[in-house]
Amino acid sequence: MGGYLGFMWTYVKLNLSSAMEYRAAFVSQVVGMALNDAIMIVFWWLFFLRFPEVGGWQLADILRLWGVLAVAFGLATAVFGNCSRLPALIASGQLDYYLALPKDALLHVLVSRMSVSAWGDVTFGVVAFVAAGDLGVATMALFLVLSLTGCAIFTAYHVLVGSLAFWMGNAEAVGTQASGALVNFSTYPGSIFRGWVKILTFTLIPAALVGHVPVALTRRFDPLVFLGVVAFAVGIAALAVAVFRLGLRRYESGNRVTLRA
């Protein structure tokens, strides 16, 4: 475990060093993404100036929602930056490099790229959560754990959808749509979803488990619900690893010229 954490940390450092080779691009991507996220909060702030609440949610809840989501999504695409590119990597046979090395191929391919702008999401997420108030140690610890479970769910979800490329060949469009659906469903107050849509947000598109449920836990902690979120994160991560390994048997490689840029 320690070896793998050290391995991941080495990649984080290397990816950051590589990105910092172009200082202006690095700073503009991080700041740009943080501002982009902040604009959404401005819209919600304007909304709440006219309407006091939506489905029992107030501005502080929206700030917590965006806080948890942005950190979870940011960590997923910063540390496991290749998760959204998995369909393209599989279809074009670019897993060869990782398969020829001793570390776990899935973990290796995921950590070998970093979305620099994702650090803007992480920065924004922390600021948004702090801005919501209630900075007790327990709340902040819960924020950290729920951000990590969210990160695991986001990453595993991308791996599951991306692994379809082993069977479909080209799964880029499906991956983009599925990723968009997860992010979009999770950025709205959970109370607005009813019926089969609500069921969908707890199953096929687990938006509730990365957004609405964590916010509910920070409002009123329920150990059973908390354990449910952790169990779901562990379960979907295990499923993603199993499906990826199953798919690897169908991997057909390729002959693209590649550089590690």
């Binding site: 080495t10 990649y11 290397l14 060093s17 590589s18 080779e21 172009y22 060869d96 490099y97 002959n255 010229v257 590649t258 550089l259 590690r260 840029a261």
Partner: peptide, 18 residues
């Protein structure tokens, strides 16, 4: 020959450490 394991924007020493 057509696939590099060295990081394009970093010196070889960094890739060796990795």
């Amino acid at each position: 020959g057509q696939r590099s394991q060295l990081w394009y924007h970093l010196p070889p020493a960094d890739s060796f450490n990795l």
